[in-house]
Design a protein around this nucleic acid. Structure first.
Length: 732
DNA sequence: ATAAAGTGACTTTTT
DNA sequence: GTCACTTTAT
């Protein structure tokens, strides 16, 4: 098999491992995805496995998609002569998507029906709130987000409400909320993300024939990012491979960064216990990063205790040193990043699209965006401001969901008066109580009201109320009648038309216009699903996050969280916010496990870099609006100083490149103009000010032909001055 | 019933 | 500095 020539010895061993359980431990940049894809190709080509008998689960849609194309490429090469039988594709998807698919087939064993909807995080929080309200608890004491976390963890550990472990009074309350939450979901015929896993594990546990069916259906199960599986996922896998034991998992405990979400890297140990005969293969050759970058990575990760020692051999050799830079504050940090990228691009050392900026929390993206914007430089942001999270998009989706599943009371509450149609709180309560008393669904009741005084409910309302409610019910009655004749796009258009949504949202303001643009984007998405059922369209929306919606293949720098960076690589990487409290995040301080995870997160970030790595911290950061002094990250101490440069040698590099450079677009051929103003002040200088007397320069930068200097004056504090205005005298 | 204005609470990471 | 939720005024 000539494709194997492209693989090193360990990779070949992994690809050609025999059947039965296999555990591949793959360090960063060691060709993990390559091994997985070739393994699939190998199974099909050499072992005669039929593609549809292969199930490969990934953690993200992005990973699934990448694997899909790569497998398709290999197979297209291999089978260019063959057509029909090989056109079958292996099943490739996230755990959640795979489970949704299984559950739609097996719903008859379960307390919901096959047209269930999947609630997103916002919906889930709404349900928690409702549950808390239902049992008369104070949502200040039981904060919905926190409660949801508890419920989610319970589900990940396969605890149903009845099994919920109770140690304290609070636990007992949690169990009650959990029970109510679950009732509400089922009443809405809805599942949350965790339910997808939980119910799938549950149905396989309780129905051996279901387990057997899917076990035979998927003769080979491959798992990517195995260290990120939680207990529910692990149990599910065990069920799936119960018969054939053909389970092939790939992972790296050092890259486990989803513990907060129930992921348990100890699943690797469980795996070794449950499959003692598993073949173990280590991939330790790194093809991504230069030696200095790998050295830093190893220095950082080695500090984690109880780590299975794993070496990484650099295949790429030497390179530039890792640069450590301290900025005055988080704003200056962002400017430094933009300046540095602009400088590297101007000197043609990197392409804009080769650069990535990574940070711990999404909130950190704001200053970076501002800096890019101010410099007039394009960038792209992955994740964060979520398309599907936007009000207007959620509104229309709520209409669709409610048409698909009239029991979805969360969606109903969302849109019953959006756009405003005169159905206020009072009307809603009347409808709800009446529906409950007569044992009909709210949508059913509304639809009945469309018949006017022929409806048995008509006289239970004041006439004005009955009229508006009936008019709304009429809309739904029509839409549901149209359901089978219209595709998703036509249905969206019908809703937009009937609700006069554009008039409502596009009020002439810029913001209104943006919102309407988002609706048009949703239409575009719906257009892609021209041939799909509404159900498929909705499932796509629920399970494909914003992380996956690529904003085109623009060749510009990418901004993202460290989490979002996993699995990616970039020639030039900036990791910002290297301050204690940010990275590691303060919320992890009191939890040793979480602290180790913070370190792994940093390690993941470092190992994304191929050629250049910049680590940036700030002397002060704004947390809640006001700046506070910030300590450098403890991780900086862990890096032998011989491996880094920048911080102690030349702090003035901070302002090497000026705004003119920034103003240059990402065009390599653009000429760089010389700054008209030159810089006179540098950090560390002592200066004399006519009013504030002696002070020390903390930072200086050129901005619009003006030198802006930040100076700390004894007894006065920090001042920011323009050098041409303030008559500063340099003392040292 | 609705819109505007005020309040408080919070920010880790995501399927 | 932002968002969600509550109160207040129309």
């Amino acid at each position: 098999m000539d494709i194997l020539k492209l693989l090193n010895e360990q990779q070949q061993q992994a690809v050609m491992a025999g059947l039965g359980p296999v555990l591949v431990m793959a360090g960063p940049g060691s060709g993990k995805t390559r091994v997985l894809t070739y393994r699939i190709a190998y199974l099909i080509q050499m072992m005669g496995v039929r593609p549809h008998q292969i199930l490969a689960v990934t953690f993200t849609n992005k990973a699934a998609r990448e694997m899909e194309t790569r497998v398709a490429d290999i197979l297209a090469d291999r089978f260019s002569d063959v057509t029909q039988s090989q056109v079958q594709r292996p099943s490739l998807g996230t755990f959640h998507a795979t489970c949704a698919r299984i559950l739609r087939k097996e719903a008859h064993h379960l307390p919901f029906s096959a047209n269930f909807v999947i609630f997103d995080s916002d919906d889930q929080i709404s349900v928690v709130k409702q549950a808390i309200r239902d049992i008369d608890l104070d949502d200040k004491l039981y904060r919905p987000r926190a409660v949801h976390g508890v419920i989610s963890n319970a589900k990940n550990e396969l605890f149903l409400p009845d099994d919920f472990p109770i140690q304290t009074y609070r636990d007992e309350v949690m169990a009650r909320i959990y029970r109510r939450y679950q009732e509400l979901l089922l009443a809405s015929n809805a599942l949350d993300f965790d339910d997808l896993l939980l119910w799938t594990a549950y149905v396989m546990d309780n129905h051996p024939q279901v387990r057997e069916y899917w076990g035979r259906r998927f003769e080979h199960v491959l798992v990517d990012e195995f260290q990120d599986t939680n207990l529910a996922q692990y149990e599910l896998l065990k069920h799936l491979v119960h018969f054939h034991r053909n389970i092939y998992v790939v992972g790296d405990a050092d890259q486990s960064i989803y513990g907060w979400r129930g992921a348990d890297y100890r699943n690797v140990l469980r795996f070794e216990n449950d499959f003692p005969d598993a073949q173990k293969i280590l991939l330790e050759h790194n093809y991504r990063s230069t030696q200095p970058i790998l050295d830093v990575a190893m220095a950082v990760i080695d500090r984690n205790p109880a780590r299975t020692p794993k070496r990484l051999f650099a295949e790429r050799g030497s390179g530039t040193k890792v640069i450590l830079q301290e900025a005055y504050d988080d704003r200056a940090e962002a400017v430094y990043v933009v300046d540095t990228i602009a400088g590297l691009v101007a000197r043609k050392q990197v392409e804009p699209g080769d650069c990535a900026v990574m940070y711990r929390t999404n909130a950190q993206s704001r200053l970076l965006e501002e800096a890019f914007l101010r410099a007039g430089l394009p960038y792209k942001l992955v994740g964060a401001q979520r398309f599907y999270g936007r009000r207007e998009v959620k509104d229309i989706i709520a209409y669709l969901r409610l048409i698909h599943n009239p029991n979805d009371s969360i969606s109903l509450m969302r849109i019953i008066n959006t756009p405003a149609r005169g159905i206020g709180n009072k009307t809603v309560i009347t409808i709800r109580t009446l529906a409950q008393q007569s044992g009909v669904g709210m949508v059913e009741l509304l639809e009945d009201l469309r018949k006017g005084d022929e409806s048995v409910f008509w006289n239970s309302f004041p006439s004005r109320m009955a009229k508006v409610a009936g008019a709304f019910g009429h809309l739904f009655y029509r839409w549901r009648g149209l359901l089978n004749q219209l595709n998703p796009l036509e249905l969206v258009d019908q809703i937009l038309l009937d609700t006069e949504y554009q008039t409502y949202i596009d009020d002439g303001s810029d913001e209104g216009h943006d919102r309407w643009e988002n609706i048009l984007e949703l239409r575009r998405l719906a257009a892609e699903h021209e041939l799909s059922s509404l159900e498929t369209f909705l499932e796509h929306i629920a399970l494909v996050s914003d992380q996956d919606t690529l904003i085109g293949e623009m060749k510009v720098p990418t901004l993202m969280t460290l989490h979002a960076a996993k699995g990616l690589e970039f020639p030039t990487v900036f990791i910002v916010g290297l301050n204690d409290g940010t990275l590691p995040h303060s919320r992890s301080f009191d939890d040793p496990e979480a602290m180790q995870e913070e370190r792994r997160l940093f390690y993941v970030g470092i190992t994304r870099a191929m050629d250049r790595l910049y680590l940036v911290n700030a002397q002060s950061r704004s947390q809640f609006g006001y700046p506070e002094p910030a300590d450098p990250s403890r991780y900086i101490e862990d890096i032998p100083s011989g491996l880094i440069e920048g911080r102690f040698s030349s702090a003035s590099q901070l302002t090497v490149k000026n705004r003119q450079n920034q103003a240059a677009r990402w065009k390599p051929d653009r000429v760089i103009e010389e700054p008209k103003t030159t810089q006179h002040f540098h950090p560390g200088m002592r200066v004399l000010h006519p009013a504030w007397e002696e002070g020390m320069v903390l930072n200086s930068r050129l901005e619009d032909d003006e030198e802006i200097v930040d100076i700390f004056f004894e007894g006065v504090g920090l001042k920011r001055v323009a050098a041409s205005m303030a008559k500063l005298e340099i003392i040292t």
